[in-house]
Design a protein around this nucleic acid. Structure first.
Length: 696
DNA sequence: GAGCACTGC
């Protein structure tokens, strides 16, 4: 290998991002203290031990960087209705501020508790566990968490960590969130669809509670927004110029390097850089950010191949792939320490940017690209395309090099290219189908979703499209009001299309089959296809294939899974992702409970008359259909779009009169996924109103 | 005839 990638350090005179430098130098140092309370056991302590432990815990809390600002934080929270707290994730703000609120009497079991939202389940669970330990209480009493399928909270709970999706559901049954005195929206900078919805909703709730203060014992609501990046001003502006608190953390410095020249081939540049770092730098593992599974698997093979050519006196390199679709057992490998005389290279997607933290990383290589979901409301097509990342995403990646000690980040692009990047990633609410969000807003009492108070307003076209979709499904009436069906649909933890199908399954007498299939469709694919065993995986899948397509194929998978009673070895042999199918079974249990609640029989089955299942799916997916053209291609009914069946589908290469599909995503072509065969004569029966309108 | 970032109820 002769090629070299030349890096240069960040231009020190470049003032415009000097602030970013302080950010990276503010690296936290939490790991040194963590062991102390991780060692806590659940065994009953005698009184003396308890006192000692309590003192230790108090001492631990006092030496957190945030503690020095405790009084100031409490004072601000006492005098302001809304506060923006800015600080790195490790500053302790998420664990300490809720405790300060309780200690200062700003929330309690009498006046209402504290809710702290998180975008991810694991974070909510772990934070609750940690704070329960710090407060020396049993998890689920004073401190608890609520995530899907798992709820430890109780009436005594005064600090509750929950996912943002969970808080949204609580609004459905408690429109003013009266059980809470303070709502903390954490990780606000991530701007997930749900946090964005909550911004507007809690702002509205706060206003109403202030107006009705005193009536029926209603108390005002405090809002705390926590963010790790510099968009604090924007949050403050949205929340009526709320006060901003800056919480400093202790973070390790990360040197940032740019390439001197633009790199035409990021994979090649990554490969060369990995070996340059390996040969020239002291020990410490490498984390490489790449856009997708393909790139990761390709580079993994290359790194391991070239590693054998290193001089015998040199350390070896071991490449570990990491992406969401990887089965858990293989994901686990990135946490194992590298073998003797070996440096670990983790090749990862964005999953390592926020969701998974890998210990031992000293070097980060950032290719500057990511695959981003997009949505075109005019033609109703989703896309998944390669885009340059934003500056904040680049800094997030950089930070991953300095979690335990000083590190280096190598960016595979020039400093000029960096300067051209957008400041922030476009919030999710501006780039996805809003049908589910709009239904949820309507069910929570937001009548006019076009006039709703959004921090970043979605385009009018996108909102109108969502309303039209809900109208076509029968969830809203001619006046734009939620129908009875719509109210029922909003209850289900599903996309509106799926809830419609599920509710309709009563008429088609196939709830058993529909619940099973929807459960499998609402998790990531249960099929796993590693690139090096593609043939075996395809072969294994053949035994499940149903001639009518993916929906009934999934049903076959489930039937076989039940026959072997979920055997883990069977899953491995058949390239079934055990984790995903298990989650699907939890979804199924949950859906069964929801069905029983609205007097549906979850066991009603159509037996061998599987056409009923597909006809039933059409009641929700009539807009996702395509008909075979004389030339053998398929054209979508709703958008006259030429679509191709995805190669991973059971219907790939087949020619049938018509197809229905779960999604249409543009990548390199317009691909439809989750495809089944239908007859065009079924269409008007499934959605008479829609097809009569279309035809006339 | 060819492929899919990440969350969440």
């Amino acid at each position: 290998m002769k090629r070299v990638v030349n890096f240069q350090e960040q231009d020190p005179s470049a003032e415009e991002w000097e602030f970013k430098d302080t950010k990276t130098e503010n690296k936290k140092r939490k790991n040194g203290h963590r062991e102390k309370f991780n060692a806590t056991t659940t065994k009953r302590l005698d009184h003396a031990e308890f006192i000692k432990k309590k003192e230790e815990m108090a001492a631990f809390r006092k030496q957190l960087p945030i503690y020095s600002g405790r009084e100031a934080i409490i004072n601000t929270l006492q005098t302001s209705d809304t506060v923006i707290v800015m600080g790195e994730t490790g500053s302790g703000k998420t664990t300490q501020i809720p405790q300060y609120l309780i200690e200062a009497g700003l929330a309690s079991s009498e006046i209402g508790s504290v809710a702290v939202t998180q975008p991810r389940r694991v974070a909510a669970v772990n934070l609750a566990k940690r704070v329960a330990e710090e407060t020396m209480t049993r998890l689920g009493s004073k401190v608890g968490y609520t995530v899907r399928f798992d709820d430890t909270s109780s009436p005594q709970t005064v600090i509750k960590y929950l996912t943002d999706g969970m808080l949204l559901r609580e609004i459905l049954s408690d429109e003013l969130l009266l059980r809470y005195k303070v709502i903390v929206l954490d990780e606000a900078h991530e701007r997930t669809l749900r946090t964005d919805m909550l911004f507007g909703m809690v702002k509205k709730i706060q206003k109403i509670r202030l107006e009705r203060q005193g009536q029926d014992g209603i108390l005002p609501l405090k809002i705390v927004i926590m963010s790790a990046t510099l968009d604090a001003e924007k949050f403050s502006e949205f929340f009526n110029n709320a006060k901003i608190l800056y919480v400093s953390g202790r973070l390790y410095p990360v040197d940032t390097m740019f390439t001197v020249e633009p790199q035409a081939d990021y994979l090649d540049a990554a490969l060369v850089s990995i070996f340059q770092i390996h040969v020239n730098n002291p020990k410490g593992d490498i984390l490489v950010f790449l856009p997708g599974q393909d790139a990761i698997e390709g580079l993994t093979t290359l790194v391991n191949e070239y590693s054998t050519q290193l001089r015998p006196t040199q350390q070896k390199l071991l490449a570990c792939p990491l992406f969401a679709a990887l089965p858990p057992s293989q994901q686990q490998k990135v946490f194992d320490p590298a073998p003797e005389n070996t440096r670990k290279v983790v090749l990862s997607t964005n999953i390592a940017e926020t969701s998974i933290t890998i210990p031992g990383i000293k070097y980060v290589i950032d290719c500057g690209l990511a695959k981003l979901r997009g949505f075109n409301p005019k033609i109703g097509v989703e896309s998944l395309l390669l885009h340059p990342i934003s500056k904040s995403s680049a800094w997030q990646r950089t930070g991953r090099a300095g979690r335990e000690a000083a590190g280096v980040c190598y960016r595979l692009y020039t400093e000029d290219a960096f300067r051209e990047l957008e400041d922030d990633t476009v919030p999710e609410i501006r780039r996805c189908n809003l049908a589910a969000a709009v239904l949820s807003l309507k069910a929570s009492g937001v009548e006019n979703v076009l006039e709703f108070d959004y921090m970043d307003r979605p385009s009018r076209a996108s909102l109108v499209r969502a309303l039209e979709e809900l109208y076509a499904l029968g969830a809203i009436d001619d006046h734009g009001n939620l129908s009875e069906l719509g109210k029922q649909m909003a209850e289900f933890p599903l996309d509106p299309t799926y809830s419609k199908v599920l509710i309709q399954s009563k008429e088609y007498g196939c709830s058993l089959e529909i619940i099973a299939i929807i459960s499998l469709l609402s998790v990531d694919s249960v099929f796993f296809t590693p690139s090096d065993k593609r043939e075996q995986a395809t072969e294994a899948r053949k035994k499940f294939l149903h001639p009518d397509g993916d929906h009934l194929t999934l049903l076959n998978v489930l039937k076989s899974y039940w026959e072997v009673k979920g055997d883990i070895e069977w899953c491995k042999e058949n390239f079934i992702n055990n984790r995903n199918i298990k989650i699907a079974m939890e979804v199924r249990d949950q859906l069964i409970r929801f069905c029983e609640r609205i007097d549906m029989d979850p066991k009603s089955s159509c037996g061998s008359d599987t056409d009923n299942v597909l006809k039933c799916f059409l009641t929700g997916f009539f807009q996702n259909t395509a008909l075979l053209q004389p030339d053998g291609s398929y054209k979508s009914v709703a958008g006259s779009q030429n679509v191709k069946i995805h190669p991973g589908s059971a219907m790939f290469g087949k020619r049938v009169e018509g197809i229905l599909y779960n999604e249409l995503v543009f990548t390199t072509k317009h691909y439809v996924r989750g495809v089944s065969a239908i007859q065009s004569a079924w269409l008007p029966l499934a959605a008479p109103k829609y097809f009569n309108n279309v035809r006339s």
